[in-house]
Computed example of a mutant assay.
Amino acid sequence: MLHSFKRLMSTKVPRQFKSVVYSSHNLEDCTSVLSIQNYTPKEDLAKSIVLRSLAFPINPSDINQLQGVYPSKPEKTLNYSTKEPAAIAGNEGVFEVISVPEGESSLTEGDWVIPVQANQGTWSNYRVFTKASDLIKVNGLDLHSAATVSVNGCTAYQLVNNYVDWNHNANEWLVQNAGTSGVSKVVTQIAKAKGIKTLSVIRDREGFEDVARNLENKYGATKVISETENGDKQFGKEQLPQILGPDAKVRLALNSVGGKSSSAIARKLGKDALMLTYGGMSKQPVTLPTSLHIFKGLTSKGFWITENYKRNPEEKPANVADFIKLYKEGKIVSPKDDISSVEWDVNSATDEQLLDLIKSSINAKGKKQLVVLKW
């Protein structure tokens, strides 16, 4: 909520900005290309929208950009007083508006905003935008939701809503693997709110029942099964029909794993269904049985949220607005329990300390890392 941070309504626009930048790429050690740059912004700040950063996550796509293997890359420039053309790292984050130019009525000081497009550079204490249309207000979300809605939230929203014309009065399902992932948890919540049932597949593990119960009770999954059950043909013939119920239609599969897991969730689809692949955590190819294409009319497509919004930028504000509505209605919970927050003390941290903080967050295992700025 907005009151979570002290508003700086009288904050003076700073003369210098501090950003985490890179000029080159390194596949083996992406942290080696990072540096901290202090610079005077080129823009006329009196005629610009000035933002201060509140928090930014470190996503796999950010790391892939530093490695040089991500298909979408920001343009490198000399705007940050570097010797070589450089870009600011990061694609996602939430900001607070601290200054708007005279005549700008769509934004006010204190608004929380996110960029419409990726590649804007979010690992920074301040950022400048010249057009309000390049920003989306996210007032009403908590910090963790606002900082991650652009990737996980919007990906989940489109996966559920953009590809299948659901019959909400029927017994219709979607099946997904990687059921404990951030996107999958939002998928189950949005699906439940829309009256769609979800079958989530997760890895076999110690304490499976507790994890499954949490996904069902907290995140709204209709049923959680293991990868062993997912690949078991006998389970598919005997137990699965009992889980799905009478006249069930499994119309959509969401794949972010690949390999055998993707083949197994595809087999659960009904006639003329769709599988969307948006990740490949197993690093194994997606292999689909020929019979699914010939006899069931399966369609398999790729999904990339960055490209979707590049093609149709007007969709993002509408998607975010619907997400915020669901959040305010209590149908989507904050991802705070799945996030590990680290603090950047803007006023006291040295450049070396900031760089160490970023590097350790990139190398951290387990929960998603969120850098929260202490002002």
Rank of each mutant, 00 (worst) to 15 (best):
N64S: 14
T350P: 11
A118C: 10
S256Q: 08
W304A: 08
V20S: 14
R311T: 14
L8Q: 09
I362E: 02
G103L: 09
I98S: 08
T11C: 09
S348V: 06
N59I: 00
V113P: 08
V100C: 11
P74G: 08
L370I: 14
V50L: 07
T130H: 11
Y126K: 14
S72H: 14
K260V: 13
E102A: 10
G103W: 12
S181V: 03
S291I: 10
V128C: 04
R15E: 15
P246A: 03
L370T: 11
D322P: 13
N59C: 01
G90Q: 07
A89W: 14
R311S: 15
L174C: 14
E343S: 15
G279F: 05
L54N: 09
D165I: 00
L326M: 14
E229W: 10
S348N: 15
L8H: 11
K374H: 10
R127E: 06
I243P: 06
F95V: 01
A147D: 11
N79F: 02
A266N: 05
A89T: 09
Y22N: 04
A266M: 02
P335Y: 05
R251K: 15
Y80G: 10
Y126H: 06
P101C: 07
K249Q: 15
D337H: 12
A146F: 10
G231H: 10
E84Y: 01
L276C: 07
Y163H: 05
N255Q: 12
G297R: 02
V13C: 13
S106Q: 12
A248K: 12
K336N: 07
V186C: 15
E238G: 07
S340E: 15
K233V: 13
G297V: 08
G103P: 03
Q284H: 05
V128D: 04
N255A: 03
V187F: 02
Y70I: 06
N167G: 01
I58K: 14
L288K: 09
P335H: 10
S145K: 05
E104P: 12
G153V: 06
V160F: 04
N91Y: 05
L8S: 10
Q117V: 01
M281A: 12
R213N: 03
A156Q: 11
F323Y: 03
G103Q: 09
T40S: 15
V333F: 02
S226K: 13
S341P: 07
R7D: 08
T155H: 08
N64L: 06
G68L: 03
K271D: 11
S24Q: 05
K223F: 02
G366P: 12
V333M: 03
K18R: 15
A221C: 01
D142T: 05
E206P: 00
V116C: 07
V224W: 00
K18M: 13
